Amino acid sequence: MKTIRLLVSLLCLLPVLALGQNKKVKITGQFKKITGDFDKLYLFYKYDGEQFLDSSALKNGKYSFEFDLAQPVQVRIIVFKAIPGRPGAGISNPDNTLSIFLEPGNIKLESEGKFSNVKVSGSKSHAEFEKLNALASNYQAKSMDLMRKSQDKNLSESDKKAIQEEVKALQTQLKEDVYGRYIQDNPTSPMLFYALQRYAGSSREEMMKVLEMYKKLPEEQRDSREGIAFAKRLQGQLEIMIGSIAPDFTQATPDGEMVSLSSTRGKYVLLDFWASWCGPCRKENPHVVQAFNNYKDKGFTVFGVSLDRESAKANWIKAIADDGLGGWTNVSDLKYWSNEAALKYGVTGIPQNYLIDPEGKIIAKNLRGEALEKELEKLIGKN
Results as ranks from 00 to 15, higher is better:
residue 85 G to F: 04
residue 346 G to W: 03
residue 106 N to D: 10
residue 181 R to F: 05
residue 130 E to K: 12
residue 207 M to F: 14
residue 153 K to E: 10
residue 319 A to I: 02
residue 124 K to H: 12
residue 170 L to M: 02
residue 227 G to K: 07
residue 84 P to K: 15
residue 132 L to R: 05
residue 33 K to F: 09
residue 160 K to C: 04
residue 30 Q to T: 14
residue 57 A to Q: 09
residue 287 H to P: 06
residue 161 K to V: 00
residue 182 Y to W: 13
residue 89 A to S: 14
residue 62 K to A: 07
residue 315 N to C: 02
residue 278 C to S: 12
residue 334 L to R: 04
residue 76 R to E: 09
residue 383 N to R: 14
residue 188 T to S: 13
residue 315 N to H: 12
residue 144 M to P: 00
residue 244 S to A: 13
residue 329 T to V: 15
residue 120 V to Q: 00
residue 199 Y to M: 04
residue 151 Q to M: 13
residue 198 R to T: 01
residue 366 N to H: 03
residue 378 K to P: 05
residue 21 Q to T: 15
residue 152 D to N: 15
residue 83 I to Y: 01
residue 105 G to C: 05
residue 290 Q to W: 02
residue 36 G to P: 00
residue 54 D to P: 00
residue 104 P to S: 07
residue 302 V to G: 08
residue 140 Q to I: 15
residue 342 A to R: 00
residue 39 D to W: 04
residue 156 S to Y: 09
residue 256 G to Y: 04
residue 375 E to P: 00
residue 21 Q to R: 14
residue 128 E to K: 08
residue 297 D to R: 06
residue 250 T to W: 07
residue 186 N to H: 13
residue 178 V to Q: 00
residue 91 I to P: 03
residue 340 E to R: 05
residue 307 L to A: 04
residue 372 L to S: 07
residue 295 Y to N: 01
residue 40 K to V: 02
residue 272 D to V: 04
residue 109 L to K: 10
residue 184 Q to N: 06
residue 11 L to Y: 00
residue 77 I to G: 12
residue 166 E to P: 06
residue 357 D to W: 01
residue 162 A to E: 07
residue 351 P to S: 08
residue 382 K to L: 08
residue 309 R to S: 13
residue 95 D to R: 13
residue 19 L to D: 13
